[in-house]
Amino acid sequence: MQKPQLLTRRRVLLAGAAAVGAAGTAGVLAAGLGEEPVRPTTPAAGPRARHAFDPSAYRLQPLTGYGPPGTEPRRLLVRREPLLRVPGRGRTMVLTFDDGPDPRYTPDILDTLAKYDVRAMFFVCGEKAADHGDLLARMADEGHVVGNHTWSHPLLTRLRRRQIRSEMERTCDIIEETYGERPLWFRAPYGAWNRAAFQLGAELGMEPLAWTVDTLDWTTPGIRTIVDRVHDGAAPGVVVLSHDAGGDRSQSVRALRVYLPHLLDSGYHITAPRWHFV
């Protein structure tokens, strides 16, 4: 079955510009997105309902890093270390999920986020996004942010520069095709960054985002342990790392149902950054 074609932000803006131009012509005839780098965390050692697509209002707003339709992404600062926290005032935190999408676990995570009207970040692998574009379309519909986690989840420090570019660029392309816009964020598999990854990410218009709290859910330590790690690490600006794919993620799904309402009851605002940090 052929997948429905999704409108990218550039196509939306281009169509809008054409409509404005047409309206203007009719009237005439009638009248005659750098912050200082921060230190990285210890790399993770782990392995790794379809909704109708209807672009929401935020998708019509221009993103930092993108110019008029047809232009290339703005060159970003080439960082030497990934970002670990998000700036902002108050008790703000970010929940991130890596390695998906996976139809066994991602829909349950999306259901829980929707129940509490919370937005999160999903760092997806291109090869999985290509097979489950409906899940990325749902992420777009429900306001979540999708980041680049490479195509096949390799250890980037063992690849040549051209291989790293291919892993990242192919994933950018499939995200734009299925989610509706190119990603502004990327995360190196296993937290293994190198200079080439930082350079190529910046060239592709993406900021490197790591994490502050690692739930280590890939080790299946038990639901209570995952919940405790999130609760113990909760603080303003914290980025939490969990997984929605790459193995048995049933504990991750069930732990989210416990710690998310607790965070909200504790006064935390769970957000997902849509813009580059400036």
Rank of each mutant, 00 (worst) to 15 (best):
T8R: 06
V12E: 11
L14S: 15
A19C: 15
V20D: 11
G21Y: 13
G21T: 15
A30C: 00
G32Y: 00
A45R: 06
G46R: 06
R59M: 14
T64Q: 05
G65E: 06
T71C: 07
R75C: 06
R75N: 09
R79N: 10
L83S: 06
V86D: 02
V86R: 00
G88K: 05
T96C: 09
F97L: 09
D102S: 05
D108I: 10
D108S: 12
D111A: 14
L113T: 04
Y116E: 08
V118A: 04
G133N: 04
V145S: 00
H149W: 06
Q163M: 10
I174F: 04
R182L: 05
P183C: 00
G191W: 11
A192Q: 14
L200K: 07
G201L: 06
M206P: 02
M206C: 08
L209S: 03
A210F: 14
W211N: 04
T219D: 09
P221R: 14
P221I: 10
T225G: 07
D232F: 08
A235I: 00
V239P: 06
V240D: 07
D244P: 02
D244A: 13
D248R: 13
R249C: 07
S250Q: 13
R254D: 14
V258Y: 14
P261A: 13
L264A: 10
D265W: 03
H269S: 13
T271R: 01
F277E: 11
V278S: 10
